[in-house]
Amino acid sequence: MLEGSLPSTSNPLQMREKMYLLVVGYYQSGDYSRSRQLVDRCLEIVPDWGQAITLKK
């Protein structure tokens, strides 16, 4: 559901937050490749975002 709402999100801050929640969800479920893809997209929006950088490591 959350992933389906991404295309209709125009606010970059909301987009970043939704993607980060997806990153954590995919990571916790063991889908590390999808998690990495989304964390990279988060960092494209906000390159210096500490939480995303930490999760990527």
Results as ranks from 00 to 15, higher is better:
S10P: 05
E44T: 12
K56Q: 13
Q37F: 06
T54A: 13
D40Y: 02
Q37P: 10
G4Y: 07
S8W: 12
I45R: 00
D31Y: 14
L2P: 00
S33V: 13
Q51S: 12
D40V: 11
M19P: 00
Y27A: 11
R34H: 11
R41M: 09
L2F: 12
R16D: 03
C42D: 00
E44L: 12
Y27I: 06
A52R: 02
D31W: 13
S29H: 13
L43E: 03
K18M: 08
S5K: 13
L13T: 15
L38K: 01
R41C: 03
E3F: 06
M1L: 14
A52E: 05
A52C: 11
E44N: 13
K18I: 06
L43R: 03
Q28M: 14
I53F: 00
N11E: 10
A52V: 06
G50M: 10
P12E: 02
C42F: 05
S35W: 02
S8G: 10
V39W: 03
Q37R: 09
W49M: 07
G30S: 08
V23E: 00
P7I: 08
S8L: 14
L43F: 02
Y27M: 09
A52M: 01
T9F: 02
S5N: 11
R34G: 06
Q28C: 13
E3A: 00
L43K: 01
M1I: 12
M15Q: 13
M19F: 02
T9K: 02
R34C: 07
K56N: 10
E44Q: 15
S5L: 13
P7N: 04
Q51T: 04
G4S: 12
I45Y: 08
S8A: 15
D40L: 05
S33G: 07
D48W: 09
G50N: 10
A52L: 02
D40P: 01
S33K: 14
Q14Y: 10
V23A: 01
S8R: 13
L13I: 10
Y27K: 11
V39L: 04
E17L: 07
Q14G: 06
Q37V: 09
T54P: 02
L38M: 08
V24I: 12
G30D: 05
V24G: 00
P7H: 07
Q28N: 15
S33F: 04
S5T: 13
N11H: 09
L13K: 14
L6H: 05
